[in-house]
């Protein structure tokens, strides 16, 4: 059992590395494991979202991962040698709500609603892009939610939460999002 899961992980890691080094295709993407895709998307979000200007460029861009070990591991792999708006990237495991304040992007892998709410609360008024992977994530005040639909990973965006956090989300990201909740979006083309 362990062996099997180990093998699967390695396969996914290899494929992901291939994708990142310039040969990932849509087909390959679809061949990736879900956690891998999630990790890739998480990193991609940094390109479509603008954070309020940071106090110092020297401060690293912190991606917090909560209860998603695989995704975190993948992220570490993906963001190696990468930068976001000139800032180095740090992947941080988020275990308690106190850790949330230091994050710029937070992935909450938990599916338990109470737990999600617990992690969302401290980020409510901070410029933290919160990404989740649960049924009511947007309703709980999350910003981006991964949903599986027609065997494909789709995005749900809660625009109100994004705007409340003073984050600016690219129209392109909105355009590809399966569902957008919140006010009718004037930026939608």
């Amino acid at each position: 059992m362990w062996l099997r899961s180990q093998a699967r992980w390695w396969c996914g890691a290899l494929a992901l590395a291939g994708a990142l080094f310039g040969c990932a295709s849509a087909a390959e993407l679809s061949a990736l494991a879900e956690h891998q895709i999630k990790a890739l998307y998480l990193f991609n979000f940094t390109k479509y979202v603008e954070w309020p200007a940071a106090a110092s460029n020297a401060a690293p861009f912190v991606i917090g991962v909560c209860e998603a070990l695989e995704v975190r591991n993948d992220l570490v792999e993906i963001t190696r040698d990468k930068r976001v708006q000139g800032r180095a990237i740090v992947i941080q495991a988020v275990r308690s709500a106190q850790d949330v304040g230091a994050c710029d992007l937070l992935f909450i892998g938990a599916t338990d609603q109470a737990r999600i709410a617990e992690f969302l609360r401290p980020s409510r008024n901070a410029a933290v892009l919160t990404v989740g992977s649960a049924e009511n994530f947007l309703a709980l005040g999350g910003m981006v939610n991964f949903v599986r639909r027609e065997d494909k990973l789709r995005l749900e965006i809660g625009l109100d939460a994004v705007q409340r956090a003073r984050l600016v989300m690219s129209a392109k990201l909105l355009a590809i999002a399966g569902t957008i909740k919140g006010r009718a979006d004037p930026m939608r083309k």
Partner: peptide, 14 residues
């Protein structure tokens, strides 16, 4: 430019 999102997030439809 308009297709980067679609490519990044693998949405051929877009």
């Amino acid at each position: 430019n308009n297709s980067t999102g679609a490519l990044d997030f693998n949405v051929p439809k877009e």
